[in-house]
C-alpha cells in the first residue's frame, strides 16, 4: 500500500535530488523521433523504448501535453474545421509531379502596415499644405487691412498733445 503523497518530506527530497541532478547534468537530451513519441502516445512501445521517451519527457514535461493531445485527437477528439484559405494554400504546395514545394504565402502583415502608414502620411501632408496656404492667405489679408491703421496711429501719436512731438516742441519753445 502506498503512503499519501502530500507529506512535506517527499517534495523536499525531490528538490534536493533535482538540484543535484541539475548540477551534474550533461548535454540536453535530443528529441526522439516523432514516430517514437507517437507510438508512445498509443502505448505501442516496449518498456525499454517507453523509458527513453519518458526520460525525455521528464526533462521537458511540457511535451507531455503533446502526447496527451495526440491521444485525445486519435480517440475522437473534435478537430477544428479548416478554413478554405488554409486548404487552398496547402493544396498548391505540391505541384503534383515531383513533390516540388511551391512558394505561396499569405500576404505579410508588414505589407499591410506600409499601406496604412502611407495613407496616414498622405493625410498628414495634405493637412500641412492646407494649413500653410491658409496661413499665407491670412497674413496677406492682415497686412493689407492693418497697413493704413498703423500709419494713422503713428500720425495720431505725433499730434497727441500730452506725449506727441509737437507737444514736446511747444514745451521747449516755452522754456
Amino acid at each position: 500500500m502506498s503512503e499519501p503523497l502530500d507529506s512535506e518530506r517527499d517534495p523536499a527530497l525531490w528538490r534536493r535530488w533535482r538540484a543535484a541532478a541539475a548540477k551534474s547534468a550533461g548535454r540536453e537530451m535530443p528529441a526522439p523521433d516523432p514516430l517514437l513519441v507517437a507510438a508512445y502516445a498509443e502505448g505501442r512501445l516496449s518498456e525499454l523504448a517507453a523509458e527513453r521517451v519518458e526520460a525525455w519527457l521528464a526533462e521537458d514535461p511540457a511535451r507531455l501535453e503533446d502526447v496527451r493531445l495526440a491521444r485525445e485527437l486519435r480517440q475522437g477528439g473534435i478537430a477544428l474545421p479548416a478554413p478554405e484559405a488554409v486548404l487552398a494554400r496547402a493544396s498548391v504546395l505540391s505541384d503534383g509531379r515531383s513533390g516540388k514545394v511551391l512558394a505561396f504565402r499569405r500576404p505579410t502583415p508588414s505589407g499591410r502596415s506600409w499601406r496604412v502608414a502611407a495613407a496616414w502620411g498622405s493625410m498628414a501632408a495634405s493637412l500641412l499644405v492646407t494649413g500653410l496656404i491658409g496661413f499665407a492667405l491670412g497674413t496677406d489679408a492682415y497686412s493689407s487691412l492693418m497697413g493704413d491703421r498703423q500709419e494713422m496711429a503713428l500720425t495720431q501719436e505725433l499730434f497727441d498733445p500730452p506725449s506727441g512731438f509737437f507737444s514736446e516742441l511747444g514745451e521747449e519753445s516755452n522754456t
Binding site: D33, P34, L35, L69, A70, L73, V101
Partner: peptide, 29 residues
C-alpha cells in the same frame, strides 16, 4: 511534410503509430 520530395512523410510507418497521432506530434513539434 512535402519538402525534399516528401522526405518527412516517407519516414512515417503505419505499423508503428497511427497517422493522426504522428501528425499531431509533428505539428506540435
Amino acid at each position: 511534410l512535402c519538402k525534399d520530395d516528401f522526405r518527412l512523410l516517407k519516414t512515417y510507418d503505419a505499423n508503428r503509430a497511427g497517422l493522426s497521432t504522428w501528425l499531431t506530434i509533428v505539428a506540435r513539434s
